[in-house]
Design a binder for these strands. Structure first.
Length: 371
DNA sequence: GAGTTTGAAACT
DNA sequence: CAGTTTCAAACTC
């Protein structure tokens, strides 16, 4: 649609930063956040390689390092030494591979032009923005539930984040030390755990040699009261059956268990219901989109309904841009999410009113000249 | 949402 | 290494 037509509808295309099909804004990271999510990059000789598992791992340069490196053994696979926060060549942070990936997938970035981090370092230089309220990490890899630790400072294996070799991020924990700001304490805690159990950070569920059938808990469970049919049981939670190494009492989590089969059937039925609901929503959404995208007039004359010709692709685009502009405004003024949603919905209402009003006028004009 | 149950982790 | 305590998640009401 021409701009004049847009003005006729009262829809002025706002200025929206656009990069191809995806519009994005880039949050500026406050210094304290920067400190946590973006460690000083490795030297220029450092490389970032992408493995077949889509995980990026940092490979330290082969050149001699100026510092004495800590000598920890039995660190999780893929552990690397990254420069410690605080600047300068003062030490290293031991970063299991999972932490490295998490650092790289942080939803916040700094603009390369304003950052002291060279883009070649491969860390925190790509814009990763929240999608539908989820961070990039949450949308591109397995979602992890936020922890709620209150007493462990997230530095014991009670904390799922720590146990999984991840920093706490968007968690509900109190007095959390599982971040780069408390690198010293975290390092000490990792060492303590590894002293106690050298395999503390290795996955508990071993990958079987011949597919899922051989997956089993590395230590086995010790359940006594749950029958191994509740999520208290680590085997059941991992959707695997208990094995001979388990020390559970009254186990019902085995192949032929009728209780287990009943639970499986119930779970399957629930899953089917969810899928059906999702399909119904998708279908409805598709029908709405189809309706809005129709370009042929429904009524040519005399009808009571408004012509769909006003809801053209261009009008839709302009409407979307108005909504995006409102979202941007809300973000820039640091509005809470609820207020942002209200602003966007209000703008949507205004857009609809303008479209309806213009369509009504056009219809009246059309009738007056018998078109 | 508060209280209870559970079993892994931590401690003795 | 066994028994006890602590802890956070799962679960129930």
């Amino acid at each position: 649609m021409r701009n004049s037509s847009l003005h006729q509808l009262g829809l002025t295309k706002p200025m929206v930063v656009s990069t191809g099909a995806v519009r994005m804004s880039v949050p500026i990271v406050p210094p304290q956040t920067m400190k946590q999510v973006a460690p000083k990059p490795l030297t220029s000789a450092a490389q970032v390689v992408t493995t077949t598992q889509t995980q990026q791992r940092l490979i330290m340069p082969a050149t001699p390092l100026p510092q004495i490196q800590p000598n920890f053994t039995n660190l999780p696979p893929g552990t690397v030494l990254a420069p410690a926060p605080g600047g300068g060549n003062v030490g290293y942070a031991v970063v299991p591979a999972q932490y490295v990936t998490q650092l790289q997938q942080s939803p916040f970035v700094t603009l390369a032009s304003s950052s002291s981090f060279p883009a070649s370092a491969g860390i925190q230089t790509q814009a990763r923005l929240p999608l539908n309220g989820l961070s990039a990490a949450e949308t591109t890899s397995r979602p992890r539930k936020p922890c709620n630790c209150t007493k462990s400072q997230c530095l014991k294996l009670y904390c799922d984040c720590f146990a999984n070799g991840e920093f706490c991020n968007n968690c509900n924990c109190n007095n959390c030390f599982n971040n780069l700001e408390h690198e010293t304490e975290r390092l000490k805690a990792i060492k303590t755990c590894l002293d106690r159990n050298p395999e503390a950070f290795k996955p508990k569920i071993g990958k079987g040699k011949e597919g899922e059938a051989d997956r089993r808990h590395s230590k086995g469970c010790n359940c006594k009261r749950s029958g191994c049919l509740k999520n208290y049981c680590e085997c059941y939670e991992a959707k695997i059956m208990c094995s001979s190494i388990c020390k559970c009492i009254g186990c019902k989590n085995f192949e032929e268990s009728p209780e287990r089969k009943t639970l499986m059937h119930l779970a399957d039925a629930a899953e089917v219901r969810v899928q059906q609901q999702t399909a119904a929503k998708t279908k409805l959404s598709s029908q709405i989109s189809d309706l809005l995208m129709r370009t042929t007039p429904v009524v040519s004359s005399g009808g009571g309904r408004l012509p769909y010709t006003f809801v053209t692709k261009e009008v839709l685009e302009a409407t979307c841009e108005c909504l995006l502009e409102q979202a941007k405004k809300a973000e820039q003024t640091h509005q809470p999410r609820a207020e942002a949603e209200r602003m966007i919905l209000e703008e949507f209402g205004h857009c609809l009113m303008r479209i309806i009003s213009s369509a009504g006028k056009a219809k009246a004009d059309c009738a007056s000249i018998n078109c």
